[in-house]
Each structure stands twice: as C-alpha cells, then as structure tokens.
Design a protein around this nucleic acid. Structure first.
Lengths: 182, 182
DNA sequence: TTGCCTGGCTAACGCTGTTAGCCTAGACTG
DNA sequence: CAGTCTAGGCTAACAGCGTTAGCCAGGCAA
C-alpha cells in the first residue's frame, strides 16, 4: 500500500470517528506520526484528500446498492441505511461539488448502475429517484425533520409514489400491486 | 433598523454577491465601515449570523411558495426557481443543521404551510415532497448531475409520480389527469 | 565514492474566528 | 452644571487553519 493510500485511509478513519472539523492536516499528520507539512510529499493538498474520500464513498454506496434487496424498496432501504451508517462520509460525498476527474466519474457511474438496472435504463426517472433518496437522507442527517417525524412513513409515501411512476413509465419489476398507464 | 439588523443585511448582501467563503468577519466589518471585533458588540458570533440568514431564507422560501402557481407543479416550480435564484442562501439554509430556537422554528412552520395546504395536511406526504424538491435542487446546485442532464424532464417525472400519490392519498386538487387508488 | 532523490523536519506566512482591554462621545442623573 | 455610566468603536493579540520554503539525513545508483 502506497504512503498516499495510508494518508487517505487515515483521513477516512478520522472523518468517520471524529467528524469533518477534526479532519485537519495537523491532526492527520499526528495520526500518521509525522508533521503536517510532510503530508504534502504524498498529497497535493486537502482538496485532493477530500476528492479521494468522495470517490471512496461513491464506490461504497455503489457496492451497498448492488448488494441491496430486490426492487425499488430494497434499493431505497440500502441507500438510506448506508447513509445513516456513514453520515460524515455521505455528507462529504454529496454536500459539496464533485471534482470531476477520471476516477470520480468512474465511481459515479459505478454507483448509478444499480439504479439504472432497476429502472430499465430510464435516466430521468433514475435521477428523480436519486433526488428523493438524497433529499430525504440529506434532510434527515441535517436534523431538519422535527424530532417526532415518522420517517419510515415518509419514505413509504415516497416509494409508493415512485413505484407507481415507474410502473407507468416502463419495464420495472417491483412490488407490483398496481398497473397504471397514461 | 437596529444595528444588528444592518449586520445581518450586510451579511446577506455579501453572501449573495460573493459567496460563503467571502462571508468573513473582517469582510463584514469592512462592508459596515468598522473593524471585525466591533461586530461582537451587536452579534454574539458568526454562528448567530448564519442562523439569522437561515431564518431569512426560510421566510423567503415560504413567501415564494405562498405566491406560487396552483397545485403541486406550481409549488415545485416556485421552490426550484427560488433556490436557483438564491443558491448561496439556499445552500446556507439547508446544507447545515438548523439551530432550532423560537424564531427559526416559527420560520420553518411558515415555510411549510403552503405545502401542507396543498396536501390537505398530510405531513408524511408533505415531507416526502419536500424531500424530492430539496434533493433535486440540492444535487443540481452541487453540480452533481451530468452537464447534459435534462432536469426539466427529471422534475416532470418526479411530479408525475407525486401527483398520482397525492391523488391516491387524499383530498388534493391538482392537475388531475388520472385517478388511481389502492 | 559521489551524487541524487525520497521523505522527513522547522520556521513562517496569511488567513480565520474570537477575546481582552482601552477610549471616547453622548445620555442620563444628582 | 458636573459626574457617572454605557454604547460602540478601536488596537493588539491568540490559537488554529492550509500551505510554502528551505534544510537535511538516509538509501540507492553510477
């Protein structure tokens, strides 16, 4: 494992355990038993570290989705579950612009794949679905729903809506209790 | 207008014109022809300024929604339009935890009102709808959709799904081209 | 052996939010 | 009218941030 990978590993460890504000170059150096400026021998700067973590997060999400239970609800549950288990990583990965280079774009495509598979390749509905999932997770993680909100019910409402839409829109095998077309 | 309000005004101006990274205490002082430490005579610290801006943003969103065109699609269009016109304010308002005090909670309720009005008071579906809208806007603002994505089509797919769900769920008068029930 | 490159180090810079402590102008009070 | 208090400015300074410059030891290659 290259020294650079060790740096990224340590960054991930600190981020998950102590949060984004603890992820400083000096703290990172401490974790690796070196001084902060020495990190620059292995890494261009903090933005590069963050981009690497974004890429890792995308790959992890992709893997979680690929291993998800069947259909729309399985996908949604896997998404929400991964995000709430790795809130800081999710936060870093989605709450700031993605630096689009070859590796991040590849990771992005990888994460998107299971969605498209379920949706028969319909990109618009896939994006819409991603939108709900991200929106609900994002608001939940930011503590924007009132404490007494029943989020399971909220997700249920959203998924009910979307499974109808996808049934209407194209070839999706989900919990088909309905067949609608317009 | 109190001196404190002038500080918040200046902060809003700087945020909208120059972005979050430009919103520093020294820059803010400059805008008000004073030194940064003097700001602390009017405001407890930067977090308070940010919370005040969050509250303003919520009120503005609420007003935009209240003035929106009819039905679900009007609401969605108004939401997206406000957010893309005030990306930095939207960002600040939604991408970090809300400091819940009396004024922010009141502002939150105010912003939520038009949603609940359209949805006949169903909070779960309202939250789900908020989730999609926020998710799509958030991903758009963060530049997470590929440059060639047709976001109008994406919003359309989402709104189609949701108008069906709401028709099914309860008393909503929207662009009713369908009637589904399960 | 000599030279070079890798990967550590210290010192320092300019930026951030924030605190301590000083001072002055105006208002209020005896 | 004199005295006091306070609101609201100021400078100096601190700790922490990301980052750069420049130095130096160890290992490897010619």
């Amino acid at each position: 494992m290259s020294r650079r990978d060790e740096v990224i590993d340590a960054a991930e460890r600190i981020l998950e355990a102590e949060g984004l504000s603890a992820l400083t170059m000096r703290r990172l150096g401490e974790e690796l038993a070196m001084r902060a400026p020495s990190l620059y021998k292995h890494v261009a700067g903090k933005p590069e570290i963050e981009a690497a973590l974004q890429e890792r997060a995308l790959r992890q999400v992709g893997a979680a989705l690929a291993a998800a239970g069947p259909g729309l609800r399985g996908l949604a549950a896997a998404y929400r579950s991964w995000a709430t288990k790795h809130p800081r990583l999710y936060d870093l990965a989605t709450r700031r612009p993605l630096r689009r280079d070859d590796t991040t774009v590849a990771a992005e495509a990888y994460a998107e794949e299971p969605l498209l598979a379920v949706l028969g390749g319909n990109r618009d509905t896939a994006r819409a679905l991603w939108g709900v999932a991200h929106g609900l997770v994002d608001l939940e993680l930011a503590g924007r729903f009132p404490p007494d909100a029943d989020l399971d019910a909220t997700w249920d409402a959203a998924m009910r809506a979307f499974s109808r839409e996808f049934l209407a829109a194209g070839p999706v095998a989900d919990d088909a209790d309905d067949s609608v077309r317009d």
